[in-house]
């Protein structure tokens, strides 16, 4: 099956390849040249992520208005000086809700990536380090995880675990286990074949010691790059689950849920769906841009 590279293709890709002008002729940049060029899109992405993290840590500083209790007299006001993102049908300030919602998306994505990273890497390292039945069994399990479409796999986990923010995050994390496991395994297998590992064994290193001292540190760089990439994907998937109603329960200012709630007012109050969605897009693009920049630097 064909899945190991697809994640990196989906979100990273285009920056690593030579652009239109230098068609069919990749050009190597020197180290100094790279350092001089701080790419503006990467800088902007870091700013967006920094703002989102600041919203998550101290929402009250950025948006003093209450995200849950509304003032009915202010219902459905268009964006303006008093309410930057307008107000919803119960008069809640949308900007405040978006700011307070950051913690749900970011912490959810963090849980999801941790689950995928830890479980997937452990499975992959074991499958790469031992040969035989155990390795075979792990890889068949990974095949099964890959065979089920991502959204359906998440829904199967949610139907078992129940609805909620943490459950949705874990479900998203489980869908990324397969990608982490395959990458970790292929990296471990690659490093195991290298000369310095042979040398470590030859100079009397024990199996586990060599694995921990030499193989792991050299195989996990790519895994960390994948984790950065999964972060953006996780935010996207968590908002999708929130939209479908399987994530946080209603008064919570979760981004996907907010868009779902604004859907009934789409004909009259565009801001209820448009503005939270733009925030999601901005955060996801930034996370993807940063991970592809990290990947580039790693590769050259």
């Amino acid at each position: 099956m064909s899945a190991p590279t697809e994640q990196s293709i989906v979100a990273g890709g285009t920056e690593a390849s030579p652009s239109g002008g230098a068609r069919f002729a990749p050009r190597a940049r020197t180290r100094a040249e790279r350092r001089r060029r701080v790419r503006p899109t990467v800088l902007l992405s870091w700013i967006v992520i920094a703002v989102a993290v600041a919203w998550a840590i101290a929402p009250g500083v950025f948006a003093p208005a209450d995200p849950v209790a509304g003032n009915a007299a202010d219902a459905l006001q268009a964006p303006g000086a008093a309410h930057w993102f307008g107000t919803d049908a119960t008069g809640r300030d949308m900007y405040s809700r978006v700011v307070h919602g950051a913690i749900h998306s970011l912490s959810g994505a963090l849980i999801a990536v941790s689950v995928g990273l830890v479980v997937g890497t452990v499975l992959g390292v074991v499958a790469g380090a031992v040969d035989g039945v155990v390795s075979e069994a792990i890889m068949r399990l990974v095949d099964v995880l890959l065979a089920i479409p991502q959204l359906l796999l998440m829904l199967s986990i949610i139907i078992i675990l129940g609805f909620g923010t943490a459950q949705a995050a874990v479900a998203v994390g489980i869908t990324s286990i397969a990608a982490f496991a395959r990458l970790a395994r292929s990296e471990v297998v690659r490093v195991r074949r290298s000369d310095y590992v042979e040398a470590a064994y030859a100079s009397g290193g024990r199996r586990v010691a060599v694995l921990v001292r030499h193989v792991l540190p050299n195989s996990l760089t790519a895994v960390v790059a994948l984790a950065a990439l999964q972060f953006g994907t996780a935010i996207l998937l968590i908002s999708t689950l929130g939209f479908l109603g399987y994530g946080a329960p209603p008064p919570t200012p979760e981004w996907g849920l907010m868009i779902a709630e604004g859907r009934n007012y789409v004909a009259t109050s565009w801001w209820l769906t448009t503005l939270p969605g733009l925030v999601v897009v901005a955060v996801v693009i930034s996370a993807n841009r940063i991970s592809s920049a990290l990947n580039d630097r790693d590769r050259r």
Partner: peptide, 15 residues
Amino acid sequence: PSLFVSVPVFWLGIM
């Protein structure tokens, strides 16, 4: 394409 993968499908439909 990087923009396309970053847009939530449900939001795109509503837009």
